[in-house]
Amino acid sequence: MGRAPILYVNEIAYPILAAFGIPANLVTAVILHWGKCGLSRGITRYMVAMAISDLLVIFFHVLLREIYMYYQPNSFLSLSAVCPSNIYLRIVTLDYSVWLTVSFTFDRFVSICCPKLRLRYCTDSTAAVVIMSLFALSCIKYIPFHFMFETRYITDNVNWGCQPKAAYFTSKWWVAFSWMITISLSFTPFVLILVLNGLTVRNIVVASRVRRHLKGLEGKDSETENRRKSIVLLFTVSGTYILLWTTETVAFICTRITVNIVGEDYTSPSYIANDVGVLLMLLSSCANTCIYGMTQSRFREEVKNVLKHLGQFIFKSMKLAPHSA
């Protein structure tokens, strides 16, 4: 019997995702940190934090779990003493990345729809406080992960792997914690991004109509064109997030409703749906960079400059290599 097709998909997709996502998010964070993209300091803080959090997601989820642990199943990361901490770091980085996206969406909502609040909220200091607070909350609310696992099997007196304790599926406290994970990581961010982007788009459309009516403009002006670009950006952001998170959100909620976990039957519909959902979910760590970064013309210019200087450096190094040898 041949191997399941989903395994071949993962073996191809995850290395590509790591090869693109790690340098893309790293370059994005560095370029945005330089502050030459014409963005406010508050927005720049959010975007740098998002790039770094997405980089951490790719590192812990893709590079370590889906690649290293897949090909090295008996590494130190699989020890029972290390396994819970490894899972904890994965869930914390993913939660932090998701809520940074929500907070950035809320910041843009306030900036466009709440002019009075914008002066107090959309500032560099507020962005810094929100970013640090979200990180602290992500670390705190998943502390129970350190206590919910037990050894999976023992070989030569060495404890390997970890699996949820039986109480995780029966205790009302663990069931409540399980639902908290679902609500915090999938359902609430999903709904908030939908609502905030919907309200923002509605405000932009209404304001554009009023502007055209007051100015008596039949064609386009610069302000209307900027608002149109904002609508395109918002629809792209919300559409991409919904597209990449829908499968995993549905699978995540279904496992909580049935109080069950996905087994290891690689051909079962539940396993395939969960695996595809995880892949799409992790792909969003690269999509954020493309959406929030590459839509900025100055950012694209900075990327071209970085690639140009990098190419010149490599070319000079290659020319000097024979002489040094």
Rank of each mutant, 00 (worst) to 15 (best):
S222M: 09
I52F: 00
S297R: 13
Y8V: 13
R202V: 05
A81P: 00
S80H: 08
I12A: 15
D265Y: 03
T295F: 13
A207K: 15
L244T: 14
M132P: 01
I154Y: 07
E66I: 00
F60W: 15
T105Y: 02
E150P: 01
R3F: 12
N288S: 11
F20R: 06
A176W: 10
A4R: 09
H213T: 14
S78V: 01
L17K: 08
F299L: 02
S138K: 02
L56H: 08
L117C: 05
F20E: 11
I183M: 13
I31W: 10
V98I: 15
V175F: 04
G277V: 02
T188F: 06
G42P: 05
V259N: 15
V9G: 08
L56S: 15
S184A: 09
M47W: 06
L77C: 01
P322D: 00
D124Y: 01
T126G: 01
L234I: 12
W160I: 03
G42D: 11
C37L: 04
V175W: 05
S184W: 05
S284G: 05
V250Y: 05
L94G: 15
P84K: 03
S324H: 14
T258A: 14
W245Y: 04
W174A: 02
M132V: 10
Y153P: 02
G311M: 09
I140Y: 13
Y121L: 06
Y241T: 07
R228F: 11
N10H: 12
W174Q: 05
L79Q: 08
A176K: 09
V9R: 06
A19R: 06
S186T: 00
T247G: 01
S297Q: 11
I183L: 15
